[in-house]
Computed example of a mutant assay.
Amino acid sequence: MAPGYGPGTTLDWARRIDAGPFSSVSVGERVTFPNPEMVATLGACAAVTERVQVLANLWVLPQHPMAMVAQQIGTLDQLANGRLEVGVGVGGREHDYRALGADFTRRHQQLDDKVAELKALLAGEPPFEGADPVGPACVQPGGPIILAGAMGPKAMRRAARWADGVSGFSISGDAAEIAQACALADRCWSEAGRSTPPRKVSGCFTALGVADADQALHAFTARYLGFLGPELAELVAAATRASSPEVLADILDGAERAGCDEFILVPAVTDPKFLEVAAEVVAARS
């Protein structure tokens, strides 16, 4: 999503991520924005990596037919040889829904229904009576784990019925905010009678390894959140702070204390120096 993304960026970054101390390579979905398409990008990442998890973070399910998503997930899981994880959510960009001819209303109920349909398809049930199952089959029996892009109490309680965990986000990487989300997930899973605690993922926007990293981070965030309107986008961008190794280390420490299992760094720049600096921070913590 950062400016300057172009031919060669995906493969270069994926290989560097796989070679580094990172746990996953992650790609998100957005349609009406100049970023690469998620599934094709994940496929390329899966093909050139061997170690890291391949994380779809996240798939806006109400925008898509589930038979196609099931086939894409099976294909990606085969390309990744069982290293695929899938985050799903409702999104918040009406223009993406309109561009894909999808209904923007009742998104949360749509998500509940589509997850149930998707799980049935991944388990080998045919999409309708008399049809063959959707293939290919996943390497992981029953399909990859599913994380819910849920952050509020209502969405979290719904997710506790069908997700394996949550994938949240903190613009500023604030430890208290992350801890609150993790505690809410644990509580919702317990109230739903789930015997296994939820996997908890969070993340933030980050700029490292470039001159004026703080300005690059602010500009990226304001540009990416432009759909909120210029005033609100600028206000949110002012809260970003992960633009130095020291601050990033502090954010990661805070996320770990908060109970986060994994933390996603969303790069505001395409310079590979970002990965060099981030790798040093991550390696120093292990």
Rank of each mutant, 00 (worst) to 15 (best):
G135Y: 10
A179R: 14
P230T: 06
T221I: 00
L248I: 03
P144M: 12
R199N: 10
F169C: 10
A216Q: 03
S172A: 15
S244D: 15
D253A: 14
G152W: 15
H218L: 01
F169T: 07
F205K: 04
R158D: 11
L208C: 03
A192F: 09
A249E: 10
E234K: 15
A159W: 05
A175K: 10
A176R: 15
L232A: 09
E234H: 14
E246Y: 09
A155R: 08
R161S: 14
S190L: 13
S170L: 07
A175S: 14
G165V: 09
P127K: 07
V166P: 02
V134F: 08
E246K: 11
C138G: 09
V236A: 11
A131K: 06
A131Q: 08
L217R: 01
E231A: 13
P197K: 12
P144E: 11
S190V: 05
S190W: 07
G229M: 08
K154H: 13
I251S: 10
S190T: 10
G165Y: 08
A160C: 08
S243Q: 09
W189Y: 12
I171A: 07
A150R: 02
I146M: 13
F227L: 00
Q140K: 12
A148M: 05
R158E: 12
G130A: 13
G203I: 03
A219N: 05
L184E: 02
L225V: 01
S195H: 10
I171M: 12
P245H: 11
A207M: 01
